[in-house]
């Protein structure tokens, strides 16, 4: 669910960059980048069972 929300946030950022002001796009970009890094750090602390 959090990944769909992140993709939605990126979509909003890109639309804001194209249709809105630079300031709005910059703020939304910063928030989305921070959210994606936070999601990464959350998952980086998990044991990922990827190798089998």
């Amino acid at each position: 669910m959090e990944f769909a929300a992140l993709f939605l946030a990126v979509t909003v950022v890109l639309v804001a960059a194209w249709r809105g002001t630079r300031t709005v796009a910059l703020v939304l970009f910063g928030a989305t980048l921070a959210a994606s890094v936070a999601t990464y750090l959350h998952h980086a602390t998990d044991v990922l069972k990827l190798s089998f």
Binding site: F3, L14, A25
Partner: peptide, 14 residues
């Protein structure tokens, strides 16, 4: 992790 990488590719477009 793959999805996070896709998200960063999309974010590159800003």
């Amino acid at each position: 992790l793959c999805l996070l990488q896709r998200i960063q590719f999309a974010l590159l477009a800003i």
